[in-house]
């Protein structure tokens, strides 16, 4: 609905939009700036927007004090693993719901979504005990399973909405052309829904990366991802601002960069396919 505005009004709206956007972004910016300051200038009054003495010291120290690569790798494995596993389970379900809808398909979807409303804290103890019994505590495979189950309803729902955009006639054509169900899904449906699947994947990797309840409750050291890494930094109050900022930046930058690069697909994904 873009329409031509007078140059004056365009200047005003541009300024206003940029101000609002910068305000929203400012906390992240401030954190990144602080991470490059010395501890002294980080808490200087009045605050220094740009520090006089830039330093990478904080990053070096955080790196030295903790095993960052291990946390990072755990985050990658858990986020990507749970998402891929979720897609594997969800694609057939979404296919069925989108192309062979029954009277209860809608209810089924809503029920799936409602399982996400159960507060994690409410089932924390039982799940902890189950994990203990199964020997899954502090294991990556355990977290992959939990996060997959947590995000499964969202994955199914997103895929469902994307699949529904694909005309059923094309799948029928494939069936007429002699494609088996497997071929229909592999050669026709999946390639056609690839943008939607990519969006779903991205959003769920981000959700899994940022999950900070189960990843903390169910891990101690071996399988702990970056959310646990940052929690370990903020718990003892001895740490200073600049180092805390550096650790925070190290926890969020990988996903921030991924998110920015894939912004277009992500925005599509963010709308859960429900808004066009």
């Amino acid at each position: 609905m873009a329409r031509a505005l007078s140059p004056r009004r365009q200047l005003v709206t541009t300024l206003a939009a940029w101000t609002v956007a910068l305000l929203i972004f400012f906390p992240v910016l401030w954190m990144i700036l602080t991470s490059f300051k010395t501890e002294a200038s980080a808490v200087a009054m009045p605050p220094q927007f740009l520090s006089a003495d830039w330093t990478l010291e904080n990053y070096a120290e955080v790196w030295a004090r903790s095993d960052y690569p291990r946390f990072f790798w755990n985050s990658v494995v858990i986020a990507v693993g749970s998402t891929l596993l979720g897609l594997l389970v969800a694609i057939p379900s979404a296919w069925a719901m989108a192309f062979v809808p029954g009277q209860r398909t809608r209810d089924l979807l809503m029920w799936m979504l409602s399982t996400k409303m159960m507060p994690a804290v409410a089932v924390m103890v039982p799940l902890y005990l189950i994990f203990q019994r199964l020997g899954l505590l502090d294991s990556r495979i355990g977290l992959v399973i939990v996060l997959m189950l947590m995000n499964l309803p969202i994955i199914v729902w997103m895929l469902y909405t994307y699949f529904k955009e694909i005309p059923g006639e094309i799948l029928e054509a494939a069936r007429m052309d002699g494609a088996s169900l497997w071929n229909e899904i592999v050669h026709v449906l999946t390639p056609m829904a690839l943008p939607g699947i990519a969006s779903t994947m991205l959003l769920n990797i981000i959700l899994a990366w940022n999950e900070a309840f189960w990843t903390i409750v169910l891990t101690t050291t071996k399988a702990a991802p970056l959310s646990a890494f940052i929690a370990s930094f903020s718990a003892p109050q001895g740490l200073f601002y600049a180092k805390l900022s550096a650790a925070s930046a190290m926890a969020i930058l990988p996903i921030l960069i991924l998110g920015w690069f894939s912004q277009k697909q992500l925005v599509r994904g963010l709308t859960f396919g429900a808004v066009k």
């Binding site: 609905m1 873009a2 329409r3 031509a4 505005l5 365009q10 709206t13 541009t14 939009a17 940029w18 609002v20 956007a21 910068l22 929203i24 972004f25 906390p27 992240v28 401030w30 954190m31 981000i206 990366w209 940022n210 999950e211 900070a212 970056l226 959310s227 940052i230 929690a231 903020s234 805390l244 900022s245 925070s248 926890a251 969020i252 996903i255 921030l256 998110g259 920015w260 912004q263 992500l266 925005v267 963010l270």
Partner: peptide, 28 residues
Amino acid sequence: DQPVKGQGFLRILVIAPFFVMPPVAASI
């Protein structure tokens, strides 16, 4: 949604908080 300059970059700025994990957001 108005025709503002640099809309693409604006979106990048606005979307940023979504990528920040809750413990980090809270501690910032």
